[in-house]
Design a protein around this nucleic acid. Structure first.
Length: 284
DNA sequence: AGCTGGTCCTGATGGC
DNA sequence: TGCCATCAGGACCAGC
């Protein structure tokens, strides 16, 4: 358990992004962004040089989420914020001094929002209003359905994997069928659905697709619920503590006994250079 | 030193 | 043969 919380703290998948959104939204929605401080523009992509000027003294209307992107809506455009693999956002007092890896601040009247991202795989992009709906942005246009969209189902999943021979784990991670499943929750969802991670996508029939769609939704919902209890960590925290204490069933449990079946020992396998955990006895 | 991870990009592969 | 979709691997980083 302690070991796992160390991992999770650096891995924003959909639940972490959603909990972040819920945590920061009350402090930024409807407030005027006075100015931005961009100390380090060299993120996954360069932060636009004119972004601070564009958004100074503009009211921030809404903080939305699409996949793992946070969408900060202004009247004249939208900021797309991605946390990459090590990013975190915190609401802090305006006078709080930045430390190393604190790359971007959004400064409001009474407090600021701060992006810390040691590995700089995150991003802050700008989509001007005149470029059309933000969902048409190149980073968003190819994304799959939201896992909590009522249209996401076994049938949807089966349509998405039709004719694709990649492993089901790789297809979940690809994000073009359903968004939000990262490396950890891919293992967890497949365990929940009792499906072996290296099963080729097109080998999954409707029954297993139904189970998997439900498992993805349930796994992510559980994680969001677990994270919701730590919302206070987003305010007036220096961000130094982990904020997810998810109880994983397989991830990081190599060699330990399976929680569901008697006799199974959790195995670790590298899939596409990514660690995958599963129970060889009850995942077929 | 080597491993870790989310996503985009590139170059390779395979089907029609 | 040509085109397109798909796929595996590489790159980007810092922390441990």
């Amino acid at each position: 358990m302690p070991r796992l919380s160390i991992f999770l703290r650096f891995m924003p998948e959909l639940p972490e992004v959603e909990v972040t959104r819920q945590g920061i939204a009350p402090h930024i929605e409807g407030r005027v962004l006075r100015h931005m401080v961009i100390r380090e523009p060299r993120l996954r992509w360069p932060v636009p040089g004119d972004l601070a000027d564009l958004c100074a003294n503009q009211p921030l209307r809404r903080a939305e989420r699409r996949g793992k992107y946070l969408l900060l809506h202004f009247d004249h455009g939208v900021q797309l914020v991605h946390l990459g693999m090590s990013g975190s956002l915190r609401v802090l007092p305006t006078e709080q001094a930045p430390t190393v890896h604190d790359h971007v601040d959004w400064v409001f009247d009474a407090h600021l929002l701060r992006l810390r991202d040691p590995r700089r795989f995150g991003s802050v992009l700008w989509h001007p209003h005149e470029a059309g709906p933000v969902l048409g942005h190149p980073r968003l246009a190819g994304l799959g359905i939201e896992p909590f969209d009522p249209q996401f189902s076994g049938a949807w999943l089966q349509r998405g994997i039709r004719g694709r021979g990649a492993t089901i784990k790789a297809l979940l991670l690809a994000g073009d069928i359903v968004v939000g499943v990262g490396n950890i929750y891919a293992s967890e969802s497949l365990f929940r659905a009792r499906i072996h991670p290296s099963t080729p996508g097109h080998r999954l029939g409707r029954t297993r697709c139904d189970r998997l769609a439900e498992a993805v939704r349930a796994t992510l919902a559980d994680a969001i619920a677990a994270g919701g209890s730590s919302l206070r960590d987003f305010v007036h925290s220096d961000g130094g503590t982990g904020y997810f204490q998810l109880d994983s069933a397989v991830y990081g449990r190599e060699g330990e006994p399976c929680r569901r079946c008697a006799g199974g020992i959790i195995r670790k396998q590298i899939h596409n250079q990514r660690a995958t955990y599963y129970c060889p006895s009850c995942q077929k």
